[in-house]
């Protein structure tokens, strides 16, 4: 280092990337590689790992609970995601143009999304309490039968889905931004041509929004699929009678309750591959629709 050469512009830019890359290496890549490689070992975290080849995958594949957990996870993704995305879109449309208290209304929609998970779960345990919870009191006063929600294997999943419908702040903001990007001149022109509100929606707004809604759905699906664990742990714990026992919970219990980190890791592979499949599907559809994928994905 006797000659100090000034760094090139690009290298100085790369220096700004360094903390991120080092952080990612230490906090994500190394731990993830460790986690994923455990699939080929018998490891109980207490004694040293032992190589077992693909045994863990066979163990997981033949585990009844595993199959059940994948089904439950799928149900808990497929049902709420369309509802959440459509809800976010309709709300964004409703709160798009100027009016009284617009900012306050938008804030109200976003508010449930900023409640810390532990507090949010507690709140819904109360709201859906079978005897004293406001939802059931409301249903009963309307003369309807009140389900037991988290205490009933049939109603626990609808309960989880219901509580997820209030946390759609991100989707709401994305839809709002996308709707604002549609030039008003486009609608004006259509209106001059005699289009009514319904036609405007069908032929102008919806086609322009479709790619966003699709991407939003996929992102929501991946997030719900992977990160639903906290909610489940804080509310139903997988019950009653395994009705909300999902794949992340299976992984969690294999690892932290059974100390079987090998099978947990094998299930983790399945989860990662399923996530990859969702992303692949997204990519293919986006290609078909010729969406500028690199740009739009990152809008979300």
């Amino acid at each position: 280092m006797n000659k100090v050469r000034p760094l090139s512009y690009h290298n100085r830019l790369r220096l700004l990337l360094l903390p991120y890359l080092v952080g990612v290496l230490v906090l994500v890549i190394i731990p993830a590689l460790l986690s994923f490689s455990l699939a080929f070992f018998r490891y109980d975290a207490l004694s040293p790992p032992r190589w077992v080849g693909t045994l863990n995958f066979i163990l997981v594949y033949t585990d009844e609970l595993f199959a059940l957990s994948v089904q439950n996870a799928a149900a808990l993704v497929l049902l709420p995601v369309p509802l959440r995305v459509m809800g976010a879109f309709l709300l964004a449309r409703l709160l798009l143009r100027n009016g009284h208290f617009l900012a306050w209304f938008r804030a109200a929609i976003y508010l449930p999304s900023i409640i810390p998970p532990a507090a949010y779960a507690l709140a819904w345990l109360w709201i859906l309490n079978p005897l004293f919870g406001p939802v059931n009191l409301l249903l009963r006063s309307a003369g309807l039968s009140a389900p037991a929600w988290f205490a009933d294997p049939l109603w626990a999943r609808p309960g989880l889905i219901l509580m997820s419908l209030w946390q759609i702040g991100e989707g709401f903001l994305v839809c709002l931004a996308a709707l604002q990007d549609i030039p008003p001149s486009l609608e004006d022109a259509a209106r001059v041509d005699g289009a009514n509100g319904r036609q405007l929606f069908r032929y102008i707004t919806l086609p322009l929004m479709a790619p966003i809604l699709l991407l939003l759905s996929f992102r929501d699906a991946i997030l719900t699929f992977q990160e639903s664990l906290a909610t489940v742990l804080l509310t139903t714990g997988g019950g009653p009678y395994y009705s909300t026992y999902t794949l992340p919970l299976f992984i969690y219990e294999q690892g932290f309750d059974l100390f079987s980190f090998g099978t947990a890791s094998a299930a983790l592979w399945v989860m990662y591959l399923l996530t990859g499949l969702i992303v692949l599907l997204l990519y293919v559809i986006a290609r078909q629709w010729q969406i500028g994928i690199t740009d739009e994905v990152f809008l979300l």
Partner: peptide, 8 residues
């Protein structure tokens, strides 16, 4: 019963 136990 289950519902009452869950409620309290």
């Amino acid at each position: 019963d289950r519902v009452e136990e869950a409620a309290m």
